[in-house]
Simulated scan of single mutants.
Amino acid sequence: MDTYDHALLGFALRWSGYGGGDDYIFTEFGIPPRVFYQRVLWMVEKRLASDLDLTMRQQLREHCLAKLTSFQEPR
């Protein structure tokens, strides 16, 4: 993982307990929240976030999935 990926994970960890900080994602990283959560989820599921313990990875995974679900448009 590069420094950008570490920054994404750090942001996700800091803000996951406060709703995610979606209003700051684009200005901080230049990507929309949906892409942010997809990328963080990918890193967690591919175990690239090896410095996180299993519990923290699971919590972050659940947070990302919940956020991605909330972005889906109603049918």
Rank of each mutant, 00 (worst) to 15 (best):
Met1Asn: 08
Met1Glu: 10
Met1Ile: 09
Met1Cys: 10
Met1Arg: 14
Asp2Cys: 08
Thr3Lys: 15
Tyr4Arg: 15
Tyr4Gln: 12
Asp5Tyr: 05
Asp5Gln: 14
Asp5Thr: 06
Asp5Pro: 02
His6Lys: 14
Ala7Trp: 03
Leu8Cys: 07
Leu9Thr: 00
Leu9Ser: 03
Leu9Pro: 02
Gly10Arg: 11
Gly10Asp: 13
Phe11Met: 03
Ala12Ile: 06
Ala12Glu: 06
Ala12Met: 02
Ala12Asp: 07
Ala12Leu: 08
Leu13Asn: 09
Leu13Asp: 12
Leu13Pro: 01
Arg14Cys: 06
Arg14Tyr: 08
Arg14Val: 07
Trp15Ser: 09
Trp15Cys: 11
Trp15Asn: 11
Trp15Leu: 10
Ser16Pro: 00
Gly17Cys: 07
Gly19Met: 10
Gly19Glu: 09
Gly19Thr: 09
Gly19Ala: 10
Gly21Pro: 04
Asp23Cys: 04
Tyr24Lys: 13
Ile25Asp: 07
Phe26Pro: 01
Thr27Gly: 03
Glu28Ala: 10
Phe29Lys: 10
Phe29Asn: 02
Gly30Thr: 06
Gly30Tyr: 01
Ile31Asp: 01
Ile31Phe: 00
Ile31Lys: 03
Pro32Met: 13
Pro33Val: 02
Arg34Pro: 01
Arg34Ser: 06
Arg34Lys: 13
Val35Ile: 10
Val35Lys: 15
Val35Thr: 10
Val35Pro: 01
Val35Gln: 14
Val35Ala: 15
Phe36Cys: 05
Phe36Asn: 04
Tyr37Thr: 01
Tyr37Ser: 05
Gln38Trp: 03
Gln38Ser: 05
Gln38Ile: 00
Arg39Ser: 11
Arg39Thr: 08
Arg39Asp: 05
Val40His: 06
Leu41Ser: 00
Leu41Ile: 01
Leu41Trp: 04
Trp42Cys: 07
Trp42Asp: 13
Trp42His: 10
Met43Val: 05
Val44Cys: 12
Val44Gln: 04
Val44Arg: 00
Glu45Trp: 01
Lys46Cys: 03
Lys46Ser: 07
Arg47His: 10
Arg47Cys: 01
Arg47Asp: 15
Arg47Phe: 02
Leu48Thr: 02
Ala49Lys: 01
Asp51Trp: 13
Asp51Pro: 00
Asp51Gly: 07
Leu52Gln: 04
Asp53Phe: 08
Leu54Pro: 03
Leu54Val: 12
Thr55Arg: 15
Thr55Leu: 14
Thr55Trp: 07
Met56Val: 08
Met56Gly: 01
Arg57Met: 14
Arg57Lys: 14
Gln58His: 11
Gln58Glu: 15
Gln59Phe: 05
Gln59Val: 07
Gln59Gly: 11
Gln59Asp: 11
Leu60Glu: 02
Leu60Met: 12
Leu60Tyr: 00
Leu60Ser: 03
Arg61Gln: 11
Arg61His: 09
Arg61Phe: 00
Glu62Lys: 12
Glu62Tyr: 05
His63Leu: 01
Cys64Arg: 00
Leu65Cys: 11
Leu65Gln: 15
Leu65Glu: 14
Leu65Met: 11
Ala66Gly: 09
Ala66Thr: 07
Ala66Glu: 15
Ala66Val: 03
Leu68Pro: 04
Thr69Pro: 02
Thr69Cys: 13
Ser70Tyr: 04
Ser70Gly: 09
Ser70Arg: 06
Phe71Asn: 03
Gln72Ile: 09
Gln72Ala: 11
Gln72Asp: 06
Gln72Glu: 15
Glu73Trp: 04
Glu73His: 09
Pro74Leu: 13
Pro74Ser: 15
Pro74Asp: 15
Pro74Gln: 12
Arg75Gln: 15
Arg75Ser: 14
Arg75Cys: 11
